[in-house]
């Protein structure tokens, strides 16, 4: 179940770039600057009423011009429909507005995205690493981060084994 994409497109013609319906799921591709007004609309509009935040995540496409993609997954309990909103973020301006003013639950989810992918969230109340240690170097879910190998542990100095 998903809402009529045309309504959102007409309300935000500047922000919504494209829509896609696949596997019975609606995806909105948007301009990253418009995330907060769009989210306020999705949350407050009586036809949308996306009161429940399901998840925030991120994707990495190293070859693309705008490297990262942040996706938001919302659900409406009264209307029983879902929506996915996606915004592209480039590596140089690696930041997007936080949606914590709309959904308080976004706090930890955005922290995780920051930790794992290195995307910053503007006006986030407490943007720190959440899983990795605070002095950790790099962002593990980026595609250029090695899955195998010793990583930062290889820089440790050990006593020579003689």
């Amino acid at each position: 179940m998903y809402p009529e994409p045309k309504i959102i497109q007409e309300a935000f013609p500047q922000i919504v770039i494209n829509t896609k319906i696949e596997f019975g799921e609606l995806t909105l591709f948007i301009e990253k600057g418009g995330i907060l007004p769009l989210c306020r609309f999705l949350h407050d509009d009586p036809g949308m009423r996306f009161d429940h935040i399901t998840d925030i995540g991120s994707l990495d496409f190293p070859e693309d011009e705008e490297r990262f993609e942040v996706f938001y997954q919302f659900y409406s309990i009264p209307k029983n429909h879902r929506i996915r909103v996606k915004a592209r973020v480039s590596e140089e301006a690696c930041a997007i507005d936080s949606v914590t003013p709309v959904w308080k639950g976004a706090n930890f989810m955005e922290r995780e995205v920051y930790d794992m992918m290195g995307i910053r969230f503007n006006n986030h109340p407490d943007l720190r690493r959440i899983m990795m240690p605070e002095d950790f170097d790099g962002h593990p879910l980026r595609k250029d981060f090695p899955t195998e190998g010793r990583g930062w542990r290889s820089t440790f100095e050990f006593l020579p084994n003689t």
Binding site: G57, F71, F108
Partner: peptide, 25 residues
């Protein structure tokens, strides 16, 4: 959440764990 670009592996697998989100509150 599975993002597939074809092939036998997911390009990205995002888990939405209830415990993590409950910890947010």
């Amino acid at each position: 959440y599975i993002y597939s670009t074809g092939g036998n592996r997911p390009y990205r697998l995002k888990i939405r764990p209830p415990s993590f989100i409950h910890m947010g509150a």
